[in-house]
Amino acid sequence: MSRVGFFLFALFASVLLVLAAPVPVQDGELVDLEKRLTRVGRGTWYYPGLGNCGKRNGDNDLVVAIGKGLYDRNKGSNCDQWMEIVNTANGKKAYGMTRDSCQSCGDNDVDMSPALFKKISTLDTGKITVSWHFMNRSWKP
């Protein structure tokens, strides 16, 4: 009988530990773990227009398109969310607002407006390696 009692106690304790796991909160707001992930991928530039987020932007706006697969999985929830982008070759950092999705981009890739790309490289470069992550939803530069 003591083995059964010990087993039930261990099972009950395990369930309580799982339920008591902390929920990530930042500035009083629940944090999606996906949005804290730093990704490393390809950085390119494009001429923005009317993006998937339903807003029109131009070449001088600091906007970015994320991979279509990531955009679709997140159901566009990253629209108007800022991200920090770092050129891994030179360490230059810039901030861009998510306004579109990129059909040819993978989950780790970003496509930037010319103005944003120029903050971390030259347009002649065309393609660079970047690390990036989403900022807290309430963050603004």
Rank of each mutant, 00 (worst) to 15 (best):
residue 129 T to L: 13
residue 101 S to M: 02
residue 79 C to L: 04
residue 123 L to A: 14
residue 97 M to F: 00
residue 129 T to F: 02
residue 114 P to H: 13
residue 102 C to E: 04
residue 104 S to K: 02
residue 112 M to P: 06
residue 112 M to F: 06
residue 48 P to Y: 11
residue 102 C to P: 08
residue 110 V to G: 11
residue 125 T to W: 04
residue 61 D to N: 15
residue 88 T to L: 14
residue 95 Y to V: 06
residue 103 Q to C: 00
residue 101 S to I: 00
residue 111 D to P: 03
residue 49 G to D: 05
residue 46 Y to M: 07
residue 119 K to S: 14
residue 128 I to L: 12
residue 83 M to G: 08
residue 134 F to G: 04
residue 77 S to R: 12
residue 101 S to Q: 07
residue 130 V to K: 02
residue 133 H to G: 01
residue 106 G to V: 00
residue 57 N to I: 03
residue 69 G to V: 07
residue 122 T to M: 13
residue 61 D to E: 14
residue 126 G to V: 06
residue 93 K to P: 00
residue 56 R to E: 12
residue 126 G to T: 13
residue 51 G to M: 13
residue 106 G to D: 14
residue 74 N to S: 13
residue 92 K to S: 11
residue 94 A to E: 10
residue 88 T to F: 03
residue 65 A to E: 03
residue 80 D to H: 13
residue 75 K to P: 01
residue 54 G to F: 14
residue 114 P to T: 07
residue 131 S to Q: 12
residue 108 N to C: 05
residue 101 S to T: 08
residue 60 N to W: 12
residue 117 F to K: 07
residue 125 T to R: 12
residue 79 C to H: 10
residue 79 C to S: 05
residue 131 S to L: 04
residue 121 S to D: 15
residue 136 N to K: 01
residue 99 R to K: 10
residue 121 S to N: 13
residue 115 A to H: 03
residue 113 S to F: 02
residue 84 E to P: 00
residue 56 R to A: 12
residue 63 V to Y: 07
residue 109 D to V: 01
residue 65 A to C: 05
residue 45 W to F: 11
residue 90 N to K: 10
residue 72 D to S: 09
residue 117 F to A: 03
residue 48 P to C: 11
residue 87 N to T: 02
residue 53 C to D: 10
residue 84 E to T: 15
residue 109 D to L: 09
residue 90 N to D: 12
residue 98 T to E: 06
residue 78 N to T: 08
residue 61 D to R: 14
residue 105 C to A: 06
residue 136 N to D: 14
residue 58 G to A: 02
residue 54 G to Q: 15
residue 89 A to C: 00
residue 70 L to H: 09
residue 124 D to C: 03
residue 80 D to M: 10
residue 134 F to C: 02
residue 130 V to Y: 03
residue 45 W to P: 05
residue 45 W to D: 06
residue 134 F to D: 05
residue 127 K to D: 10
residue 122 T to C: 11
residue 96 G to M: 08
residue 58 G to C: 01
residue 136 N to H: 10
residue 79 C to M: 05
residue 114 P to G: 12
residue 113 S to H: 03
residue 51 G to K: 04
residue 72 D to W: 01
residue 130 V to C: 01
residue 70 L to S: 10
residue 127 K to Y: 05
residue 91 G to D: 01
residue 55 K to G: 04
residue 135 M to W: 02
residue 107 D to W: 13
residue 98 T to W: 01
residue 86 V to Y: 01
residue 128 I to T: 07
residue 118 K to A: 14
residue 105 C to P: 02
residue 47 Y to S: 13
residue 65 A to I: 00
